[in-house]
Measured scan of single mutants.
Amino acid sequence: MKVIFLKDVKGKGKKGEIKNVADGYANNFLFKQGLAIEATPANLKAL
């Protein structure tokens, strides 16, 4: 799943980066902690 990092995550990505991560990691950690959002066309356009 492509995500947009909202904050720096050690070993994974920096704020503003768009990266592919495992679905479970994105859903269970990044999204719940507010560290990233899904890289949907609408979210990409908002950058």
Rank of each mutant, 00 (worst) to 15 (best):
F31P: 00
K10S: 12
A46P: 09
V3S: 03
N27M: 10
L35A: 10
G11M: 04
G24T: 11
D8S: 14
A46V: 12
K10F: 14
K45N: 14
K15C: 07
G16Q: 05
L6T: 12
F29K: 10
L35N: 13
E17C: 07
F29M: 09
V9E: 03
A36T: 00
V3I: 12
K10Y: 13
L30V: 01
N43F: 03
N20P: 13
T40D: 08
M1D: 03
G13I: 06
K14Y: 10
K12R: 13
K32M: 09
G24C: 08
F29P: 04
K7I: 09
K7L: 08
K32I: 07
K2V: 02
G34K: 06
I18L: 08
V3E: 01
G11E: 14
K10I: 15
D8L: 02
K14H: 15
V21N: 05
N27V: 12
K15W: 06
F31C: 07
E17L: 04
A22V: 09
L6A: 04
E17T: 08
K14P: 01
L35D: 04
D8H: 03
V3Y: 00
D23N: 13
A22I: 15
K32C: 05
K14E: 08
A22G: 13
P41L: 04
F31K: 05
G11K: 03
V21W: 02
N20T: 07
F5I: 01
K14V: 13
K10A: 14
A42H: 07
K12E: 12
P41T: 14
L44P: 03
A42C: 11
A26H: 09
F5W: 04
G13M: 04
M1W: 11
K10W: 12
A36N: 00
N20L: 10
A26K: 09
N28S: 13
A26D: 01
P41C: 10
N43H: 14
D8N: 12
N28C: 09
V9W: 02
L47D: 01
I4P: 00
A22K: 10
D8I: 02
T40N: 13
I4W: 04
N28E: 03
E17P: 00
A42I: 10
L47R: 14
K45P: 09
I4H: 03
I4F: 15
A26V: 02
F5Y: 05
A22Y: 08
Q33N: 15
E17F: 03
G24H: 03
K15I: 10
K2Y: 10
A42L: 09
K19R: 12
L47P: 07
A26W: 04
K2E: 09
G11T: 05
A26N: 04
I4L: 06
K32W: 05
L30T: 01
N20G: 11
G16R: 06
K2H: 05
N43D: 07
N27P: 00
K14S: 11
L44R: 07
A42V: 09
L44E: 14
F5L: 08
A46R: 11
A46C: 10
L6N: 05
G16E: 08
G34H: 04
L30R: 00
L6I: 13
F29T: 09
V9F: 02
I4M: 11
D23C: 08
E17D: 08
G11D: 14
V21D: 02
G13T: 02
L47A: 03
A22D: 14
Y25I: 04
K7V: 11
T40R: 07
L6Q: 06
F29I: 13
A36K: 01
L44N: 07
A46E: 15
L35M: 09
K15V: 10
V3C: 06
A46W: 06
I18M: 13
A46M: 14
K10M: 15
K10Q: 11
K15G: 08
F29G: 09
P41V: 09
F31V: 08
D23A: 10
F5D: 02
N43V: 08
V9S: 06
V3N: 01
N20F: 15
D23R: 11
I18S: 05
K2R: 06
K32N: 06
I4A: 04
E17N: 04
G16K: 02
A46I: 14
V21E: 03
F5A: 02
E17W: 02
P41F: 07
I4Y: 05
K12Y: 15
K10R: 13
V21C: 10
Y25V: 13
L30H: 01
T40Y: 09
G13V: 05
V9T: 14
V3M: 01
T40A: 07
N27G: 10
K32S: 08
N27Y: 07
A46Q: 15
G24F: 07
D8Q: 06
K12A: 14
T40I: 04
K2T: 05
A36Y: 01
L30W: 02
N20V: 14
T40S: 11
L6H: 03
K10V: 14
E17R: 01
G13C: 07
A36F: 00
F29E: 07
A42S: 10
G34P: 01
L44A: 09
A42P: 11
N20D: 12
L44T: 05
Y25G: 08
V3T: 00
V3P: 00
L6D: 03
V9M: 06
V3Q: 00
K2A: 01
I18T: 02
D23H: 13
K10T: 13
N27R: 15
A26M: 05
P41E: 15
I18Q: 03
K19T: 12
F29Q: 13
L44H: 11
K14T: 05
K10C: 07
D8W: 04
L47G: 02
K12W: 10
Y25T: 07
K32Q: 15
L44D: 10
D8C: 11
A42D: 11
L30I: 02
P41Y: 13
Y25C: 09
A36C: 04
Y25E: 07
N27S: 13
K7P: 00
K45T: 14
G13D: 05
L6E: 04
K45M: 09
G24S: 13
L44Q: 13
N20K: 13
G24V: 09
G24M: 08
M1G: 02
G13K: 00
G16H: 14
A36E: 00
N20W: 15
L44M: 02
A22R: 06
K14G: 09
K10E: 15
G16I: 00
G16F: 08
K14Q: 15
A26P: 01
F31T: 04
K45L: 10
T40G: 07
M1N: 15
T40H: 11
K19E: 08
P41S: 09
N27T: 15
V9K: 04
D23Q: 05
A22W: 06
F5H: 01
L30P: 00
K14D: 08
G24A: 13
N20S: 11
N28Q: 15
G24P: 13
L47V: 12
K12Q: 13
A22N: 12
L30S: 01
F5P: 01
V9P: 01
F29Y: 10
D23L: 13
K15L: 07
L35K: 06
D23V: 09
Y25W: 12
K45A: 13
K7F: 10
A26R: 03
K10P: 04
K19C: 11
L30F: 01
A22S: 14
N28L: 08
N28D: 12
M1K: 11
T40W: 02
N43L: 05
V3H: 00
K19D: 04
G34S: 11
I18P: 01
N20Y: 15
I18V: 14
N28G: 13
K15D: 02
F31R: 04
N20E: 11
D8T: 09
F29V: 15
I4C: 09
A46Y: 15
N28V: 06
D8R: 07
V3A: 00
G34F: 02
K32V: 10
E17K: 02
N28I: 03
G11A: 11
G11F: 12
V9G: 02
G16M: 13
N27K: 03
D8K: 05
N43I: 05
A26Q: 00
A36P: 00
V21L: 07
L47S: 05
A36W: 01
L30G: 00
K2N: 14
G34Y: 04
L35G: 04
V3G: 01
N20C: 13
N43E: 08
L47E: 06
A42T: 13
I4N: 00
L35V: 09
Y25A: 08
G16V: 01
N28W: 01
A26E: 03
G24E: 11
L30M: 05
A26I: 03
V9D: 02
K19W: 06
N27E: 15
L47K: 13
Y25F: 04
L35H: 04
K2I: 10
G16P: 04
V3R: 00
P41I: 14
N20A: 12
G24R: 12
A22F: 05
Y25L: 08
A22M: 08
V21I: 12
K19S: 14
N43Q: 05
V21T: 04
G34N: 15
L6W: 02
P41K: 07
L30N: 00
K14C: 14
F31Q: 03
Y25S: 14
N27I: 12
L47F: 15
N43M: 07
K7G: 07
N28R: 08
